[in-house]
Design a protein around this nucleic acid. Sequence first.
DNA 1: CATTTTTTCGCAACCGTTTTCGTAAATAAA
DNA 2: TTTATTTACGAAAACGGTTGCGAAAAAATG
Lengths: 335, 335
Amino acid sequence: MSKVNIKVLADQLQLSVSTISKALRDSYEISDETKKKVLELATQLNYIPNPYASSLRRKKSKTIAVVLPEVADNFFSLAINGIQSIAESKGYHVLIYLSHEKFANEKNILEDCQSGRVDGVLISISSETNTAEHINKLQNQNIPVVFFDREQEAIKTARVTTNDFDCGLMAANHLLQKGCRRPAFLSISQSLPICQNRMEGYKAALQQAGLREEDMQIVYCTDNDGMYDQVRSLLQAADRPDGLIASVEKIVTPVYLACHELNIRIPNEVKVIAFATLDTAPILNPPLTTITQPAFEIGKAAATVLFKGIEKSAFDLSKERMVIPSLLIERESTK
Amino acid sequence: MSKVNIKVLADQLQLSVSTISKALRDSYEISDETKKKVLELATQLNYIPNPYASSLRRKKSKTIAVVLPEVADNFFSLAINGIQSIAESKGYHVLIYLSHEKFANEKNILEDCQSGRVDGVLISISSETNTAEHINKLQNQNIPVVFFDREQEAIKTARVTTNDFDCGLMAANHLLQKGCRRPAFLSISQSLPICQNRMEGYKAALQQAGLREEDMQIVYCTDNDGMYDQVRSLLQAADRPDGLIASVEKIVTPVYLACHELNIRIPNEVKVIAFATLDTAPILNPPLTTITQPAFEIGKAAATVLFKGIEKSAFDLSKERMVIPSLLIERESTK
DNA sequence: CATTTTTTCGCAACCGTTTTCGTAAATAAA
DNA sequence: TTTATTTACGAAAACGGTTGCGAAAAAATG
C-alpha cells in the first residue's frame, strides 16, 4: 500500500532523487551527514528498493536459474540446498525450473532464461536431452551456464560431477568380489553421461574379470511408471542376474519391491548396490549398499564456479571441470 | 550479445516502438498485416522481451516465492512439484527460499518479498516462528500470502493443510488398537500448529482410551542433530513407550536406527507410525506404517488459491481454508 | 460530396533506479 | 587575494517495455 520509493524519500528530505540513490549505495559523493539522514528515513518508512528497476538499469538480475529434471529426489534436493547456500551468501535469488525429464520443457525453460531474467544458469539435463543447441543459444547471449551431475558433453563450459566411471567400476567390482557372477546394470538413459560413464565402469570391471560382452546385462528403465514391471520381468527371466546396480536413486524402490514380491532374497539370491543419497538407506530391508554422491557439495561447487563466471566475464568457464568423488558405503544388501 | 529489443525491431520495420509493443501484445489497435510482420521479425531475430522492464511498468512480476524450512524432505519437494505445476500452467516463475527452520531467516526472506519481486508468497513457516508481524507486513503491502501445511494461526489468509487433528487421533487409535498401552508422541515444535494439532489428536485418543495426562509421553526433538540421542534415551528409559508416533518425516530414520541399535524389535517391542510421504516406506525394515500426506495436492491447491488472490485483488483469501485428508497406510511396523 | 466513424499508428509520459556530467560552494594552494 | 581543487549535490538521460491520447488516413454513413 505504502509505495515508498526513492522519490518519496527525496521529497521528504528536500533532496534530489539521485542524491538519495547515491546515499543508499554509500557513494563517496555524498556527505556522511546526509547519508545518515537518508538511511534513517529509509528504515523509518520501511523503504525497500525495487529490484526490477535496479536490474533494468544495471543489467544484473542478482538471480540464477536452477534447471533440473525433478525435485522429488534426494540427490537434487540436496544439490539445491548446496546451491542455495552459496547463492544466499552472495545475495542472489534462485529460480527453480523442472524439466520433468522432457527435452521440450528444458528447451522452453532455457529460452526464457535468455530474457535477462537471470545472470546465470545451473543445469542438470533431462534424460531425453542429446543435443546442444538450446544450451549454446544461452551461451551466445553471454549467460554463463554450469552443469552439475548431468552434463551435455558437446558444450564447452564448467561442469561439476562425481567420478562416475570409477564408481561404476567400484560398484561392479564390489559385486564381483562378493561373489556375483552375472551382475546387471540398470540405467535410465542411453544419452546421459552419468549413466553412460557408470555403465562403462561396469563394463570395464566385468571385462577385467573375464566376462564377455554378451554376458553383461544392461536394462534401460526409461519409463518412470513401468520401472517396476521391467525389473520384475528381469528377475523372472531364466538367466536372471545375481547382482543389480541401480544407476540412479529412483530405481531402488522398484527393485526392492520386485524382490520382495518374487520372494527373491537380498543379498542371498541377488545383491543390490545403488547410486543414491537416500538417508533411509541404512534402515531399508535389508540396509542398502550405496554409492553415495556428495550432492550438497556438488551443488555448492557448481554454484561457486557459476558465480566466478558471473562476476568476471573474463573468467573462462570452459576449463573448469571439477570431480567430487562419491563414497561406497557397504551395507547388508551386498553382504 | 545480440541485444535485440523492441527498438531494434522498430527500426528495422520503420515502425514506432509503441506499435511493436502493441503488436506483440496482440492489441486491437494494430492491423493483422503489421502484426504478422512484427511477429515474423521477432522470431527471426530471436527477440525475447525483458521481463523486468515489463514488470516495472505493469507492476506485475509474474513470479511467486515459495518459502519453506528445507527442501531435502519428501513432503516439501513433492509440494514444490505441485506448486510448480500450477505456476507453470499460469506462466509464473517460482523463487525458492529456505528458512532452515530459523525465524530470523524467514523474516529476512519475507522482507525481501515486499520489494515487488514477487506477486505472492506461499509459505510453510519455520518451527521457530511463533509471531505474525513479519507476515502481516507482507499483507499490508497487498502481497497475498497463502500457507500450506505449516500455518501461522494469527494471520488471516488462506491455508491448505491436512486433517492434522484427525490424523493424530487416527495414529494413536491405530497404536492402541494394535495393543499399545503407552504410545509416545515425537514432536519437533511447541508452536507449529501441525505438531500441536497432531498432538491434540493423540491426546484425545489416549484420553478416550482412559489414559491419564501423566501417562502420555510427548518428546520434543527440536535439535536436528540430537534427534538420534533423544530417541535413544527415550527408548532406554525404564518406562519406555511401546509405541511411537513420529510427527514428521525426518524423525523416522533416527527412530529406526535407535531401535536397531538397541535391539528393540519393531513392531514386537515397539510399534512405529509416522507422518511421512517417504516412497521408501514399504521397503523399510520393517515396512513403515504411515500417515501419508497428499503433498503434491497440497502444493497444487495452495498455488491455485494463491493465484486467485493474485489475479483478482477483490478475492477474499481470509475465508479460504482447505483441508486435504491424509491416508493411513498400514504396514508391518504396527502389526 | 460532406460528415461521421473506424482503423491504424506515433508521441510522449511513465515504471523506479542508476549514473554521467555539470556546477555552486567550500576549501586548499599559490 | 586569486586560482586551483575538492566536496556535495542536482538535472537529465538512460534501462526496455507499456499505455493513454491524439491524429491522419481510410471507410462508412447521410
